[in-house]
Amino acid sequence: MSSIKRIVLGLYSLTRLVTATSEDKPPCAQGSYTPYKYLGCFEDSRDSRSLSYRSDLGFDSVTVESCTAVCKANGYHYAGLEYYGECYCGTDIASSQVSDSQCTYPCNGDKSQTCGGSNLLSVYADPTIMQNVAEPKDYVSLGCWTDGNGGRALGFNQADNVNGSELTTKMCLQACGSRGFGYAGTEYSQECYCGTQLDDNSER
């Protein structure tokens, strides 16, 4: 029996044009922007980066504040810290969320902060993108897609935000839309997932 699961998706168009640069723009001054908020611990891989842009911040001095300031200055929604002092930025997160307990490495620039782990990112999000919220009526159905075929189709599990035993499509769309996610999906009659993009391994 196939282990491939299927997820029903809805889409709300949330787009922003970002131009990649070969070197960092100067970081935003602290206090000049809304601080990024912690999203959680996410998988990463050298072969397929979860966040596409690698900052040139010094490995020995990286902190949450310095990484998010660079990502903000360069127009990225997300900032991720990994392996003690690596800083990544991106407009989408191309991986799945895992337990926060897996991200345990202290940041080189501030040992009281967490900088992911080995192939694990501590991810922070620009809260101002969440102002671009969607209503259930704004989503359109994309049909049925595979899930769990090499990775989650949508990486943000809403188990803490919706009651699975009473889940409806509208409830899932509300949960994802209120958090600014462009994609919403329901699965197994009681699971709701959100995302900024579909995993490349997901198929219709």
Rank of each mutant, 00 (worst) to 15 (best):
M1I: 08
S2F: 02
S2H: 08
R6D: 08
R6S: 11
R6N: 13
V8P: 00
G10C: 04
Y12P: 01
Y12F: 10
L14S: 14
T15M: 07
T19N: 13
A20F: 01
S22P: 01
E23W: 09
K25D: 14
K25A: 15
P27G: 09
P27R: 08
A29V: 06
Q30F: 13
G31V: 06
S32Y: 06
S32M: 07
S32D: 11
Y33K: 05
T34Q: 10
T34R: 10
P35E: 13
P35W: 14
P35M: 13
K37Y: 02
Y38E: 11
L39I: 10
E43G: 10
D44V: 04
S45E: 10
R46V: 05
D47Q: 14
S50A: 15
S55L: 03
G58A: 14
D60F: 08
D60H: 10
S61L: 12
T63W: 02
V64R: 01
V64Q: 04
T68P: 01
A69F: 08
A69D: 07
A69H: 04
V70Y: 02
V70C: 03
C71D: 04
N74Q: 06
G75V: 04
G75W: 09
G75I: 03
G80N: 05
G80A: 08
E82V: 06
Y84E: 11
G85C: 05
G85F: 00
G85L: 03
E86N: 12
C89I: 02
T91S: 15
T91F: 02
S95H: 04
S95N: 12
S96M: 09
Q97R: 15
Q97S: 13
S99G: 14
S101L: 10
Q102F: 13
C103M: 06
T104P: 00
C107M: 07
N108D: 07
G109S: 09
G109T: 09
K111M: 12
Q113M: 10
Q113V: 10
T114G: 04
N119D: 15
N119I: 04
L121R: 02
S122A: 14
S122C: 06
Y124G: 05
D126I: 01
D126A: 10
I129W: 03
M130T: 08
Q131M: 12
N132Y: 03
V133W: 00
P136M: 09
D138N: 12
Y139V: 02
V140M: 11
V140Q: 12
S141D: 15
L142P: 04
G143S: 09
G143N: 11
T146W: 00
D147M: 08
G148C: 09
N149D: 15
R152G: 02
R152Q: 09
R152I: 01
A153D: 01
A153C: 11
D160H: 13
S165E: 14
T169I: 09
T169E: 15
K170A: 15
M171D: 09
L173A: 10
L173K: 10
Q174V: 13
Q174M: 11
A175N: 03
C176G: 05
C176H: 03
G177V: 00
G177C: 06
G180I: 02
G180E: 02
G180W: 00
G180V: 01
Y183K: 07
Y188A: 13
Y188M: 08
Y188T: 06
Y188C: 05
E191T: 08
T196N: 05
Q197D: 06
D199V: 02
D199G: 07
D200P: 13
E203W: 06
E203K: 12
E203I: 14
R204T: 14
